[in-house]
Design a protein around this nucleic acid. Structure first.
Lengths: 338, 338
DNA sequence: ACGTTTTATTAAAACGTTTCAAAAATTATA
DNA sequence: TATAATTTTTGAAACGTTTTAATAAAACGT
């Protein structure tokens, strides 16, 4: 396989010159440049990225570790949507994505250490930020560019993009309350996810505002899977009296919940109202179409990339922390109380 | 940041010894080994993967390029399911996944060249094999390990895993025919995808076997998106007389088709029967649950990884070509003809 | 105690680039 | 034409490992 050496020899120049031509890193006479370009073409030469990275200390690669907790990539969660937008956007800056899997919760840091200390990437995007998230302190201490999707309660200043989950849930609750519901259930995310807190806050706040009592029996924490939603809903339907509406912290769980309700013979949107959170593609295609809180996930991916690339380039971020407002998307899974 | 040099100095040995300790590549006295290990721990040393790759010509990374044609990762297609299983399985062999995006159809080869010639990966997994797929010849010529998901019509011997699409569609058709349907529509994949052929073959064969005439008006080729399925279904419903059942080449399209049918006021499973293909998670959660042909996508991802790892290790494959049988999953989207 | 194996260790040469400082070639100026 | 200024080109030193062949140290057999 041809190396820069071969190209240099063929073009009758030094390897330094070839490098300069490739990287536009010094003036080279047009005539010489043409000779080099020709040689490159002749050999179908492509620089060895590994050697290049070693010397230049840049890899053109961004790390994304799939968290063990959300490795339900086989379900249509927001994560695959996010990944799609990240891949799309990073391509625009000529970055590839290095995808790693973290096995267990305990081994959470292992892939980061390998990838960061091993200098395999120029920066990291972290998702599913948790309360007391260890990754944040680590990445800060290693001084590697990174951006998080989601805030955390670590007392550290770090760049992130997040969605105002409290406002989102509040909107959904507002909508349900306006439909006349007073007994509204809530299916929340695992409490280790920091965003679970905000969403619950939105629920409580909306109730309080209307002078409704918070009933712990109506609040359930479930796994972020369809099965998780399914089980939580079954429990809620067994409460006496059952809720007439349920606010659910993720679409995925909402799908499971819908199934549970349908199994009980309930017509969704008539006998029970459901609001989801995320607005994944499928929300518009399930039956009935799901009323939900839209997270602008594509935009989030784009922002994460853009911010990270800026950090990698050593530029200063104009906005180091971004919180986006989610939006209520009304479809057909809710109806007035009967 | 500590390098192998620092570790060597601290442990009072040569860097070669440190390397041997790390890689278990030569006998080193226990006492010495302990000293080295201690130094490694003290520095929290992690070898620089880039340098390591340059020298050893191994990267521990597998390439996956998201094809432009299927960059509908933002829809719950089989691709995200497949990716999930690949990430999972590759982790078991300590490989990371390098995810690249190919922009346009013309630029299809660019990422492969960069990644393969640039020596960024040890092997490739390619998906969405097309008729006359250029990638296959290229990867063979570059002599880099790779495995394809899907056959192709290039006259070349290459390792792949595929699903018997013909048999799959045949099963679905059989089921519909047994329900009494005789006017059955078919929504196929874009003809550039090689697998589109097999599926259509299954359709034709099933008809022929029952002595039914093939009606071109009932066969439509659509894009592999929900919208694609939606549009194709609208067209089919305008045929006179319309089909009473439709065999659809992907679940994603089936979801769109269901929406189209529901918009026309049809009850799926009663007024019209629909069979999908893939069995993505959502198929079990849409309404009504979709009868479909299951591709064992998780298993496919696992096989692809295993085969690729074997090739990377220079081992010979026991089975160089694997064709899996899909399975009919009966749910509620079909009913007897009325 | 001495050669002979065997076992541990090391020095140094890669791997293929980028990136300096310095040298060479060219052009401008006096 | 000689000198200065500028533009091009180059040589060689990194980057941090692995790996080989050679050396040193230890263990063994007589």
């Amino acid at each position: 396989m041809a190396t820069i050496k071969d190209v240099a020899k063929r073009a009758g120049v030094s390897i330094g010159t070839v490098s300069h031509v490739i990287n536009n890193t010094a003036a080279v006479r047009n005539e010489t440049k043409d000779r080099v370009l020709k040689a490159i073409k002749e050999f179908d030469y492509q620089p060895n990225s590994v050697a290049r990275s070693l010397r230049s200390r840049r890899t053109g690669t961004i790390s994304l570790v799939l968290p063990a907790i959300e490795r339900s990539m086989d379900e249509p969660s927001y994560l695959s949507d996010l990944l799609a937008s990240i891949v799309d956007e990073s391509k625009r800056y000529n970055f590839d994505i290095l995808l790693s899997a973290s096995s267990s919760e305990e081994e959470e840091m292992t892939p980061y250490k390998r990838v960061v200390k091993g200098k395999m990437v120029d920066g990291c995007i972290i998702t599913c930020t948790k309360r007391n998230d260890k990754r944040i302190a680590y990445l800060l201490s290693e001084n590697i560019p990174f951006v998080a999707f989601g805030r955390s309660n670590v007392g550290l200043d770090f760049p992130y993009v997040d969605v105002d989950g409290e406002a989102g849930v509040y909107q959904g609750m507002h909508y349900l309350l306006d439909l006349g519901h007073t007994r509204i259930g809530f299916i929340g995310l695992p409490s280790e996810l920091f965003c679970s807190e905000h969403r619950l806050k939105g629920y409580r706040f909306a109730l309080k505002e209307r002078g409704l009592k918070f009933d712990p029996a109506l609040v359930i924490e479930g796994k972020t899977t369809q099965t998780g939603g399914y089980r939580s809903m079954k429990k809620l339907l067994n409460v006496d009296p059952p809720p007439t509406a349920v606010m659910i912290s993720s679409d995925l769980m909402a799908f499971g919940a819908m199934k549970a309700a349908q199994e009980e013979g309930l017509i969704i949107g008539r006998d029970i109202s459901i609001v989801g959170f995320d607005d994944v593609q499928m929300a518009n295609n399930c039956h009935p179409p799901l009323t939900t809180i839209r997270q602008p996930i594509y935009k989030i991916g784009v922002l994460l990339c853009q911010m990270l690339v800026q950090l990698i380039r050593g530029e200063k971020l104009s906005e180091r922390q971004i919180i986006l407002l989610p939006e209520l998307i009304v479809r057909e899974s809710c109806g007035p109380i009967r």
